[in-house]
Design a protein around this nucleic acid. Sequence first.
DNA 1: CCCTTGACTATCT
DNA 2: GAGATAGCCAAGG
Length: 112
Amino acid sequence: MSKFHDEFDQKVWSVVSSIPGGQVMGYGEVARAAGFPRYSRMVSSAMSRSPEPLPWYRVVKSDRTLAFEQGSESYREQAQLLKQEGVRFEGKKIVAQPRGDNLDKILWGPQD
DNA sequence: CCCTTGACTATCT
DNA sequence: GAGATAGCCAAGG
């Protein structure tokens, strides 16, 4: 196929699958980490092309909100999967990961 | 080749 | 904080 994918896709998949549960990364961050700065808009398509399931829901916009339209099916799905891992929201924005206590959140749920 | 479309981002008002 | 604007870049019509 020799499209621009080959390496880009591989790197993106690698980066995304390495995001720890309970944490999120921005599209731009993923692109940079993959070695392709300014390719934020390509990240989503790369994830879609992944042959195996990826923690795609751990990738969010740079302002820490979800990329899908609020109320859409995808939006709710992503939000639910994230909350399931202990990620908390402040309205539409994701609360900055306070500590590495994600595991606790998953096992015990948000206490506060 | 031109135009449009995205799971985008940074900057300005 | 929300909307507008301008970059960004591959894909598909």
